[in-house]
């Protein structure tokens, strides 16, 4: 298989992860949390690099720690949530850059972490993406009702005896896994776009979280596949091309939706 095949499969696997988690992020309006997690990941990458470990393991650990810290603050001291995300966001970047520049010998390409390196994706990376997908699919499939209740009406869920805090933290941890899987494809700066745009478009046309997931997965796969070919033809950076495509699609869809609404009102 060529590197393009690897990139395509990687893109589709990442689309599955973000397609399942994205709808929760969009309806619960927590995309800022996903941004915080994504940027904290650089600390994990940098430290793992410095210590000579696998960067992706470092990324996973950092993402999960960030998710738990933000989730815990969000539950116990909601008014500091915004602050703690900003602090982690900046701190993660700073720690990451310090460790990466202090790593002796061959210096890593910082840009590939920030903006993605889908063309360098390896078969090991693909297995990891597949594993992350499986964890996300199985967990959300088994606990769909619970996640839905916690996102829709946490107070009512708590009255029904549901361990609301546990499910919320679990959902944020799954979000951390989705973020890590997306970093391979579009880099940590652009993660938020691919996590939210497909779900946001889906929301304009369908009326349940489950359907939003299905549409988001398809849209994510289309964006990465088409973005990949466009970047190959035009020799533009892949991650940025994918996001540009997704962003333009979102704007077009929003315009189309408002026209549809106008027509429906006029009738």
């Amino acid at each position: 298989m060529s590197f393009l095949h690897y990139a395509l499969i990687g893109g589709i696997l990442a689309s599955i992860a973000c397609g399942i988690i994205g709808p929760f992020v969009v309806v619960k309006k927590i995309s800022y949390i996903s941004g915080g997690i994504a940027h904290t990941v650089l600390a994990g990458l940098g430290i793992a690099y410095f210590l000579g470990g696998d960067p992706i393991v470092g990324a996973l650990i950092a993402a999960l720690i960030a998710a738990l810290i933000i989730g815990w603050v969000s539950i116990s001291a909601k008014k500091y949530e915004d602050t703690i995300i900003s602090v982690l966001w900046a701190l993660g970047m700073a720690v990451g850059i310090i460790f990466i520049t202090k790593t002796p010998g061959y210096n890593v390409d910082l840009m590939s972490y920030l903006f993605g390196n889908i063309l360098f994706i390896s078969s090991t990376d693909l297995y990891l993406l597949l594993a992350l997908d499986l964890v996300i699919i199985v967990t959300v499939f088994c606990l769909y009702k619970q996640f839905l209740a916690v996102c829709f009406d946490a107070e009512f869920a708590r009255l029904r005896g549901l361990p609301v805090k546990f499910y919320y933290l679990l959902l944020l941890c799954l979000m951390a896994l989705a973020v890590v899987s997306l970093i391979q494809v579009v880099g940590l700066i652009l993660v938020m776009a691919l996590l939210t745009i497909p779900a946001a478009i889906a929301r304009q046309y369908v009326s349940s979280i489950a359907k939003m997931m299905l549409v988001s997965i398809i849209l994510g796969a289309v964006f990465t596949a088409v973005g990949l070919s466009l970047s190959y033809i035009t020799n533009l950076p892949t991650g940025a091309t994918i996001i540009l495509l997704a962003g333009v699609a979102f704007l077009c869809s929003t315009a189309l939706k408002s026209v549809i609404n106008e027509v429906a009102h006029a009738k």
Binding site: K145, A149, R160, L162, I209, M212
Partner: peptide, 17 residues
């Protein structure tokens, strides 16, 4: 504005039953 149908909201009342 949460995308959820009436029957799914009502069924949520069964959680923990």
């Amino acid at each position: 504005d949460f995308p959820i149908k009436v029957k799914d909201v009502v069924l949520m009342g069964r959680l923990g039953c």
